[in-house]
Amino acid sequence: MTTARPTLSLETELRAKRASGRKLLMPYVTAGIVPDWLELVEAVIQAGADAVEVGIPFSDPAMDGPTIQEASVQALDNGITPASALSALATRTFGVPLLAMTYYNLVYRYGHERFAADLARAGVSATILPDLPIELADDWIETARRHGIENVLLVAPVTSDERLAMLVERTAGFLYSVSTMGTTGERSQLDDAAAVLSARVKAVSDIPVVVGFGISTPEHAVAASRTSDGIITASALMRRILDGASIDEAASLVADMRAALDVADFADQRGNDGSRHGRHLADG
């Protein structure tokens, strides 16, 4: 059961794509990880991304594992700042919605009003601020909304039913399902908790549910999408860049995920026990 809620741009777009039978694929790119990171954003869009999460690096990324930490350090060493990342995005138009993912201190310091205005100017549709929990998010959500920016909330395997009801009510764009109790990072197996969690969300809301954390291979992407509306992949992509892969080589991971999602048969997903599909995946 859902109550009426306002739908804004990212959510409208994601709902439309879902209605067309497409699984959502959202790669993450750390702004500034390489000097030509905007080309990487372009490349993952060409490879089939439905939206791109642009990470604005923070000095103390407490939710992130070693890969995103390393990507953040490299980007900060390259001199990226919140303002320079947004200015760079503002120089182009992209074919899909962009999200900004960062830690709340950078937003707080920038100022809610100014950050929301600059996001809008940069063509960013939504934010993900993992360390701004729902209880403390009212002012940001309101300010962002006035500028047409949606704020995506996270849900975790330990989230209670009571909180889940609040989260589906207050999130906008989609609900970010944290697949596992842990930090971001490549994993060889997908946690069974992901399927259980997506099913719990689906039981109470029709908000798009996108699974992130540890989605490293096309097989993971397909498995996680059986009970959800799609996936976010971050560390596996950033790992390739950190290891010196070219932009095209890195983007080929996204293309492979796109292809796998497009050919997979999800027809039987409804009412299915998705947890069976999460197991015994080979590491890519």
Partner: peptide
């Protein structure tokens, strides 16, 4: 003060 933690730690 406050409790600025990601969702997985709120319950804890």
């Amino acid at each position: 003060g406050g409790r600025y933690v990601p969702e997985p730690l709120v319950g804890a």
